[in-house]
Design a protein around this nucleic acid. Structure first.
Lengths: 83, 83
DNA sequence: TGAAATTTGTGCGTATGTATT
DNA sequence: GAATACATACGCACAAATTTC
């Protein structure tokens, strides 16, 4: 959970990449809940905007889905990209 | 170029939908330049954030690409979604 | 019934970095 | 170096959906 501020990869993409990798590793099973905006802010030490952008990127790519009032959840594997 | 503020469809999606339709109609040929952030702000009367979100959505879906210092351009038709 | 708490969605403002011309 | 234009980050406020009490 450490941002590499020296990296050319922007923080929001570092976080998104971490989440994708964690999902692929199985750290978060399909249907299980993912860290939300607040938790991401706390764990990574970034602004809400940055946390939201990371979570939205993962969602928009099909790895997860979100529901207002509930949070972010890992998408069914059938909806994952590429595969 | 009028936002329907009464619509449940948020402004940034209204703008994105307009751009997609314009591209599909051929109003903007592949390779030609699209309105940028500033122009979108002026034409639609929205904030920069909203304009950027609309342009980013169209780009992320594959309809266009962007280059720093240059602007947004219609993507080659081969890169368009679905088709 | 409904009020509060939680959480995502959207919009607006601002500043800085970076690539291109 | 200057001008242009996209990319990213941070902050704030309110809307909408869901759950809980």
């Amino acid at each position: 959970m450490e941002i590499d501020r020296a990296s050319p990869v922007p923080p929001y993409r570092q976080i998104a990449a971490f989440l994708r990798a964690a999902i692929l590793r199985g750290d978060f099973a399909p249907g299980s809940r993912l860290p939300g905006v607040e938790q991401t802010v706390q764990e990574w030490g970034v602004a809400r905007t940055t946390a939201r952008k990371a979570l939205a990127a993962v969602r928009d790519e099909g790895w997860s889905f979100a529901s207002v009032g509930l949070g972010y959840y890992v998408a069914p594997q059938e909806q994952w990209p590429q595969t």
